[in-house]
Design a protein around this nucleic acid. Structure first.
Lengths: 208, 208
DNA sequence: CGCAAGATACTGCCCTGTGCAGTATTTGAG
DNA sequence: CTCAAATACTGCACAGGGCAGTATCTTGCG
């Protein structure tokens, strides 16, 4: 083994389990589907298949389109076995990065206008993401690449949609809250402490 | 400037804007609050303040507790100015990693039992995160470190709670769905395509 | 009082991953 | 026929993660 496999290795192995792909196709497919819950830069997607081949989990078939090289990757039996084994392993915790929320959190280092702009941008980005998601799903339903996998796709997409809509609803709510604040330091008559208590109660109720 | 500042630089600068901290305290504080939307390894939090000092955005005061060194960091005027300026910049897109969802997505490479186990683990992790969040908030309300920042805290916490609860609800729903599947390849009588269409409709409705 | 466990305070190393620039060739639209 | 877009990569510098390692200080328990 060249070095310990990462989740990215298995994500690509998973795609190779469905059919053969060139790296370029793989990169596009990752952006369309996996990107929502396992985002990786295109750059990585050119390195990773080589490692899979070195470990005997994938095969590389070099061809060409005229003078341009063209490598097609496929999965091996060892690859399928390893992929199935990986499904048993415990997973890393979910983690999300939200730079704009860091700006909201430290809003008192700036002005109320800055906070309002930050929230407006979050709403705009969120609307964009929800639209993109809907467009993607529309295409996937009208012309499914893997019709027999629709149910797995639907499980994953449902979470993505709920997540994006949750952010959008929150952003609109937060923007409305902030609208009545006289300054970034005072929430007017909003009872922040009481609101936190309500949230805690919701959490306790959900976990039973 | 040593090199372009990252969001991590500004996140720490933001904390330094509230009061002075030792790196150890900073590390703990980041785990408690920022970690939910800007997760960074402890290791990084020891390097970053040094860069801030090198750029004149922070000050380092070396003291000691007996023979053990102890560096206290604080913000400079230049640091405050730079922090306020950063609030104007557009932010990076939100991004989240969810390894377990990759396993759900490629569940057809394994067995139905594996999928069920994966979902059970997601539910368990989710319950844990919701509890932790509630505990954190309880402590923060009972004994607030920065009472005058409660409203900003409440904005951020609300999003975190909604996000975690969304994942929890989804995981329970998905686990129930999968319960009736005869195999990982067939969703029994579940209309996955119809379900996707409903989700698209929800998205379209939300973006107007 | 003595000692163990946990808290405090870091550094080094190797690897993954990102972003951007750079280099070509081929295809398709007008 | 031409030019833009798509295809197909590589190199490089830096951010970041995880883990091991090395101390010292504090606290509670017997």
């Amino acid at each position: 083994m060249t070095s310990p496999r990462t989740t990215t290795s298995y994500a690509l192995l998973g795609l190779l389990g469905l059919r053969d792909w060139t790296t370029y196709e793989l990169a596009r497919q990752v952006q369309r589907s996996l990107h929502w819950f396992w985002p990786r830069a295109e750059r990585k997607l050119y390195d990773e298949p080589k490692r899979l081949v070195a470990d005997g989990l994938a095969t590389a078939t070099s061809g060409s389109t005229g003078k341009r090289p063209r490598t097609v990757y496929g999965i091996t039996d060892a690859g399928r076995t390893e992929l199935a084994r990986w499904l048993d392993e415990p997973s890393a915790a979910r983690s999300s990065e939200f730079e704009a929320l860091v700006k909201v959190f430290f809003a008192d280092a700036g002005t109320l206008d800055q906070l309002r702009t930050t929230l407006d941008r979050i709403v705009a980005e969120s609307v964009q993401r929800v639209s993109d998601l809907a467009d993607n799903v529309d295409v996937g339903v009208a012309d499914p690449a893997f019709p027999t996998r629709m149910h797995l796709n639907a499980l994953a997409v449902r979470l993505q949609v709920e997540q994006e809509l949750t952010v959008l609803r929150w952003a609109r709510w937060a923007r409305a809250q902030v609208d009545s604040w006289p300054s970034v330091h005072e929430p007017d008559d909003w009872d922040a402490t009481g609101s936190l208590a309500t949230l805690v109660a919701e959490c306790r109720a959900a976990v039973g």
